[in-house]
Structures are given as C-alpha cells and as structure tokens.
Simulated scan of single mutants.
Amino acid sequence: MSSMIKIIPAVAILAGSLGLGGCATKGYVREQVAVVDQRVSTLEGRVAETDGIARAARGEAQAANAQAQTNTQRLDQLTGRVDGVEQRMIQAQTKKPRN
C-alpha cells in the first residue's frame, strides 16, 4: 500500500502534464488566428483588386471586339465599292475611242 501511495502523486503529475501540454490557451489561439486572419484579409484584397482589373480588361476586350466587327463591316462595304470602281475603269479602258 505504501508503494501505491508513492505512485499516485507521480501518476497525477504525469497525467496533469500530459493534459496541460496538449491544450492551447485562448490567448495563444487568438494570436494564431489573428495572424491567419490578417493573411486572409490581405489575400482577399488582392483577389478583389485582380478581379477588378480582369473585369475592366474584359470590358475593354469586348469593346475592341465590337469595334473590330464594325470595321470589318465597313471594309466589306468599301471592298464592294472599290470592286465596282475597278470594273468601270477596266471597261472604260477597253472601250474603243469614238472617232
């Protein structure tokens, strides 16, 4: 029984040290979460900035595409006109002059 009495405090100290060693204090957890939260906030800001830039670039690309389509239509119209003028010039050159 005397050996049991000597073991009980040792077991209690061992159990207490194991229990305390694995637990983090609220303050420690708050500090660690604050660091992670700051990093997340920074990344959220960067993502929002990048998203804004991407949206602006998309808008500019859509506007450029619309302008390119308009320009293509105008070129198609001008090509028809130039072809017509060219045909008339060829016809005028091949006509025999009247004497």
Results as ranks from 00 to 15, higher is better:
residue 89 M to P: 00
residue 23 C to N: 04
residue 81 R to A: 07
residue 2 S to Q: 05
residue 63 A to Y: 03
residue 5 I to N: 10
residue 58 R to V: 05
residue 15 A to R: 05
residue 43 L to R: 06
residue 36 V to I: 15
residue 92 A to E: 13
residue 53 I to T: 13
residue 46 R to M: 07
residue 28 Y to C: 02
residue 30 R to Q: 08
residue 38 Q to W: 00
residue 65 N to M: 12
residue 3 S to R: 14
residue 94 T to L: 10
residue 95 K to G: 01
residue 22 G to Q: 14
residue 1 M to W: 12
residue 93 Q to V: 09
residue 79 T to N: 11
residue 65 N to Y: 13
residue 54 A to P: 00
residue 60 E to R: 08
residue 95 K to H: 01
residue 87 Q to L: 10
residue 54 A to M: 06
residue 14 L to C: 08
residue 3 S to C: 09
residue 36 V to P: 02
residue 84 G to D: 12
residue 27 G to L: 12
residue 54 A to G: 02
residue 46 R to Y: 03
residue 25 T to Q: 05
residue 93 Q to G: 04
residue 74 R to E: 12
residue 63 A to M: 06
residue 18 L to D: 06
residue 97 P to M: 13
residue 94 T to A: 10
residue 88 R to L: 12
residue 56 A to L: 10
residue 50 T to A: 15
residue 41 S to Q: 05
residue 69 Q to C: 15
residue 85 V to M: 08
residue 84 G to H: 08
residue 95 K to I: 01
residue 86 E to A: 12
residue 50 T to Q: 12
residue 68 A to H: 08
residue 6 K to H: 04
residue 20 L to D: 07
residue 89 M to L: 14
residue 58 R to L: 11
residue 66 A to I: 03
residue 45 G to D: 01
residue 33 V to F: 11
residue 40 V to H: 00
residue 88 R to M: 13
residue 1 M to T: 13
residue 30 R to G: 05
residue 5 I to F: 12
residue 41 S to I: 01
residue 39 R to G: 08
residue 5 I to G: 03
residue 58 R to K: 14
residue 36 V to D: 14
residue 80 G to T: 05
residue 51 D to N: 13
residue 60 E to P: 00
residue 72 T to Q: 13
residue 52 G to T: 05
residue 23 C to Q: 07
residue 91 Q to K: 14
residue 95 K to R: 12
residue 46 R to N: 10
residue 6 K to V: 03
residue 44 E to H: 05
residue 66 A to K: 06
residue 52 G to Y: 02
residue 53 I to H: 07
residue 41 S to E: 08
residue 77 Q to P: 00
residue 29 V to K: 09
residue 22 G to C: 14
residue 99 N to D: 07
residue 2 S to E: 05
residue 5 I to Y: 05
residue 36 V to G: 07
residue 4 M to T: 06
residue 8 I to C: 03
residue 11 V to Q: 08
residue 27 G to T: 11
